[in-house]
Every structure is written in C-alpha cells, then in structure tokens.
C-alpha cells in the first residue's frame, strides 16, 4: 500500500494528478522517470486535478500519459494548477 498524493503517469509528463485534495503552499514529492521531484504547490488543487511538475513555457505542449493533452496558454510555473484556464485544447476547435 502506498501513500502517494500525486501520480505522474509517464516519465516525460510535465504534470501530475493529485489523488487527494492538496492545499496551496505545501510541498509534494512526486516520482517521475525513476527519480523524485519536490514541487512547491502554489494553488489549491482539487481531487483529480493536475499541477505542473516543472515550468511549462507558454505555447509549449502539456504532456500526460506520455502524450500531448493540450498547449500552455501562458507560462505555467511548477506547482501551479493546470486546467482549462491555462491549458488550450488543440482538437475539435470549431472556434479557431
């Protein structure tokens, strides 16, 4: 049995999914690509939501499951909540 608070699905991912609600200003250790990364959490992250595990420059790909799930709309700092407010979907966009 583990007590992990956040899961990184694949080594090249730049986000982690929290498996319990996480409060801002805490610190989380996530396992990614065989190593451990300490992330300072900047936002409250609800259950099932994501945070950046490293800085993601605006315009670059957001990776989960080892695959792109969208593009950063703005610069996203490690520890920030990643969701519809700063992640731009690239598929099914009839508005663009």
């Amino acid at each position: 049995m583990t007590t992990r608070k956040a899961i990184v699905m694949e080594g090249i991912d730049n986000v982690a999914t929290v498996v319990e609600p996480v409060d801002a200003l805490g610190e989380i250790v996530v396992e990614a690509a065989g190593g451990k990364i300490v992330v300072h959490i900047c936002d409250n992250i609800p259950f099932g939501h994501k945070f950046a595990i490293r800085d993601i420059p605006g315009g670059s790909l957001i990776i989960k499951y080892g695959e792109p799930i969208g593009v950063a709309r703005i610069d996203i700092k490690a520890g920030e909540h990643v969701h519809v407010h700063n992640l731009e979907s690239k598929r099914g966009r009839g508005d663009q």
């Binding site: 259950f47 799930i69 969701h83």
Partner: peptide
C-alpha cells in the same frame, strides 16, 4: 473532475 481537454479524456 479534473479533465482539461478532449485529448486528456481520450488518453484515459
């Protein structure tokens, strides 16, 4: 529930 895009939903 935390899904941000159709890509993320699909990959799951």
């Amino acid at each position: 529930g935390g899904l941000s895009s159709i890509e993320e939903k699909s990959l799951g």
